[in-house]
Design a binder for these strands. Structure first.
Length: 203
DNA sequence: GGCCAGGTCAAAG
DNA sequence: CTTTGACATGGC
């Protein structure tokens, strides 16, 4: 997700998790409006969302699409996180192991592999690679592999990355940027695109 | 008006 | 285990 470059404060980490849930199959611009609505409504905290009436939460999330589904899942996410992690997101995420955090996040309704990895990487600074539609599409169009599962792609990309967490973060950001510019669903890869020169060396 | 956007889940083959 | 449909708004 774009726009997550601030320090990992309690509040910031929570916002990253909210953004990760809201951006599922949705343009980021629509998510930003919803995040802004949450801030304006004084709802940007696990406790506030956990106790917020569903209709009000749905209204705040409207612009992010699938708003009924997302409101229910976000509220439940907050309720459970509060109940099971009274120490807060910062302590929770920083003390968790990468695998432990990932599998725990996966047990929440509405948190699939990509969302779990996004939260772990961007909010928890864990060394876990995020596989999204762009990453797969770029990988397929470059002929790196075809029809791999999420775990398959993840293993492939992680195998080509060094130990630095920051690289995971920047590498993914780079793939997204390249994807937006050259690897849209309806935009075929063309001879002039720089993908072969940029990705070819990294993978 | 149609297509697409940094997915997830449940049901069915 | 793979495929399919539902979920919904906003920009181009």
């Amino acid at each position: 997700m774009p726009g997550f470059y601030g320090p990992l404060t309690e509040r910031g980490m929570f916002e990253i998790c909210v953004g990760a849930l809201l951006t599922q199959n949705t343009a980021w611009a629509n998510v930003e409006k919803a995040l802004e609505a949450l801030w304006r409504g004084g709802l940007m905290s696990p406790a506030k969302i956990a106790s917020c009436p569903l209709p009000r939460l749905e209204k705040a999330l409207r612009s992010s699409g699938y708003f009924r589904q997302k409101a229910g899942r976000l509220k439940e996410f907050c309720r459970r996180a509060l109940a099971e992690h009274k120490e807060g997101f910062e302590a929770w995420f920083s003390s968790a192991s990468p695998e432990g955090l990932r599998s725990e996040l996966l047990s929440y309704r509405g948190v699939g592999p990509e969302t779990a990895d996004s939260m772990a990487l961007y909010a928890g600074a864990k060394r876990t690679f995020v596989i999204d539609a762009y990453t797969r599409r770029i990988g397929e169009r470059m002929g790196i592999a075809r029809g791999l599962s999420y775990e398959g792609w993840k293993g492939l990309f992680e195998g080509g990355v060094g130990p630095d967490v920051k690289v995971y973060n920047e590498y993914h950001a780079l793939l997204v940027r390249l994807g937006k510019d050259f690897c849209r669903k309806s935009k075929p890869l063309c001879a002039s695109c720089p993908l072969d020169k940029v990705c070819g060396k990294l993978i």
